[in-house]
Design a protein around this nucleic acid. Structure first.
Length: 498
RNA sequence: CGGGCUGUAGCGCAGUGGCUAGCGCGCUUGGUUCGGGACCAAGAGAUCGGAGGUUCAAAUCCUCUCAGCCCGACCA
């Protein structure tokens, strides 16, 4: 018996860690809170990044790169921004053996350094819009970290755009949220709810923040991406004015938006099972693995057959790998490739050679089919296509099954449980029950009055927060706030979250 | 920053005062296996997180310290 994965039902947190470590996606680093992304994890990031980058270019954006060091004073130019980020800054005080005149912040996000340059680059309405994106690492000194979901340093992309009008900047904010939503659903098989954040949850320095929210298998919410309408806040902080078509001066309107390596955590937590990683085919480095099954006396013929199959898949443009290692048994390999999340396993043994066929097994459903070798590539494509579709459907079904409409506090209490299950309390038997509490509830959908107090009280009592105010559901929000009974203004999605 | 747990071979662990620190997995070599995590044999691999102390004797007891993980508050 080799690596073992803790079952989700036993300890969801431990299950997640086991998947990340055993599937060799990432590892801990010598520096607390940081992570090493291993080749198999990085391969997922590369594919994800490639597709997202394509979609950014398609919507008219260009990539650029800004330095990771930002003068401390830049952060201080926008009041809310500095307030929001200062607790988690990493600061460089020395360079070249000497104390720096002004400390440098390792970027937690790049609005400030980018807007300091936008000031130089924007004079006229003819210079607008600027639609820039950068792929970079950022550092936020988090107290509490978790592989992929929250690390002190993480990889992301941050789009920073500058516009002539408010409407244009708002349209950009909405457009990018939609790019994220479609990307999450089509490519990552991650059903998400797009909507606006409440004031207390919005980005430090934004006028409005929008997010896409996904539900993990423990029914907790994960913010999978954000798009911010920044108004003229950064333009004012960095004095970025342009001459309008009418000849007057006005501040530039802005948006910023980002997704990070956290998405990898979202994918794991949404699709994987107790056997290991389950990946959407779109993201898998290898779509198929061929496992030849041979004994010493038929190795040559089986390998020849397996290689032939390999060639056929390859010729059809499929990403295929062959596991010809003869020091491991087939059973070991099956388990290992399941752990790694390869979408389809192709078994080729003496029986298959004899019948000129192969056995194909889907990673997600375990569905097994035997097909003639020449039909195998077409069947593989079909299975991959179905898997991509069904992973999304399955996740959506799960989310819907765990979403409830709530009208009042009684509904909410019934849904989430009156008491928060205490974690880490040693039980009478002395055993640790760490992390075993099943998350109750899921997404609650209900009317909200818009009061910050209501929101804060709910958070304090149940650790439930407003994830967002879903787009397309904000009309006809008349009725009573499900928290306080006052007249409601919004429809909100409530959940416990990561 | 609070709470809990843990530092002994690459990994997971056992060893609660006694002289040569064990076990499983993994690794190396050779052989037999091979359709759901095979087996046999022979090997390699550790100054027991660190410092100080108690003792004839310390992985084990005491003091200090460092680190990591998980949980909580804060956050993409």
């Amino acid at each position: 018996m080799a690596e073992k994965i803790t079952a989700r039902s036993v300890d969801y947190s431990q299950w997640y860690i086991d998947i990340v470590l055993n599937a060799k996606l990432a590892d801990y680093s010598p520096v607390k809170g940081c992570m090493v992304i291993r080749p198999r994890g990085y391969a997922i990031w590369e594919r994800l990044r490639g597709e997202l980058d394509r979609r950014f270019k398609e919507t008219g954006h260009q990539n650029a790169y800004f330095p990771m060091f930002i003068p401390m004073s830049f952060l201080q130019k926008e009041a809310e921004h500095v307030e929001g980020f200062s607790p988690e800054l990493a600061v460089v005080t020395h360079g070249g053996g000497e104390k720096l005149e002004e400390p440098l912040v390792v970027r937690p996000t790049s609005e400030t350094i980018i807007w300091s340059k936008y000031r130089d680059w924007i004079q006229s309405w003819r210079d607008l819009p600027l639609l820039y994106n950068q792929w970079a690492n950022v550092v936020r000194w988090e107290k509490r970290t978790r592989l992929f979901l929250r690390t002190a340093e993480f990889l992301w992309q941050e789009g920073h755009t500058a516009h002539e009008t408010k409407a244009e900047a708002e349209a950009e904010t909405a457009q990018m949220l939609e790019v994220y939503r479609k990307f999450a659903e089509e490519y990552l098989c991650l059903p998400v709810i797009a909507g606006r954040k409440s004031d207390s949850e919005k980005f430090a320095g934004a006028v409005e923040t929008y997010s896409i929210e996904a539900m993990m298998q423990d029914k907790k919410a994960l913010q999978a991406g954000t798009s911010h309408f920044l108004g003229q806040n950064f333009a004012k902080a960095f004095d970025v004015q342009y001459q309008t078509r009418e000849g007057s001066l006005d501040y530039v309107w802005a948006s910023s938006w980002g997704v990070s390596t956290r998405l990898i955590g979202a994918i794991i937590m949404t699709h994987s099972d107790d056997k290991g990683l389950v990946l959407p085919p779109s993201l898998a480095q290898d779509e198929l693995v061929i496992v030849p099954i041979f004994k010493s006396d038929n190795k040559a013929s089986v390998m020849e057959y397996a290689n032939k199959a390999f060639g056929l898949f390859k010729a059809e443009g499929l990403r295929v790998v062959i596991d010809s290692d003869d020091s491991q048994s087939p059973g070991w390999k099956f388990a290992e490739w399941e752990m790694r999340g390869v979408p389809i396993r192709v078994e080729a043994g003496p029986k298959d050679v004899a019948s000129a066929s192969v056995v194909m097994v889907r990673r997600d459903s375990g569905e097994k089919v035997q097909v003639k070798l020449e039909e195998a590539p077409a069947m593989a494509k079909e299975l991959l296509k179905r898997m991509q579709k069904e992973l999304l459907e399955k996740a959506r079904t799960f989310r819907e099954a765990n979403t409830k409409d709530v009208r009042n506090m009684d509904d909410i209490l019934a849904f989430y449980g009156k008491e928060i299950v205490a974690k880490n309390q040693p039980a009478d038997d002395g055993e640790s029950h760490e992390g075993t509490s099943e998350a109750k509830g899921g997404f609650a959908r209900g009317l909200w009055c818009g009061s910050r107090d209501c929101e804060a009280r709910l958070k304090a009592e149940l650790k439930v927060t407003i994830r967002n105010l879903p787009s397309g559901m904000q009309d006809n929000c008349s009725g009573a706030c499900c928290l306080c009974g006052a007249s409601a203004k919004h429809m909100a999605i409530f959940a416990r979250s990561y």
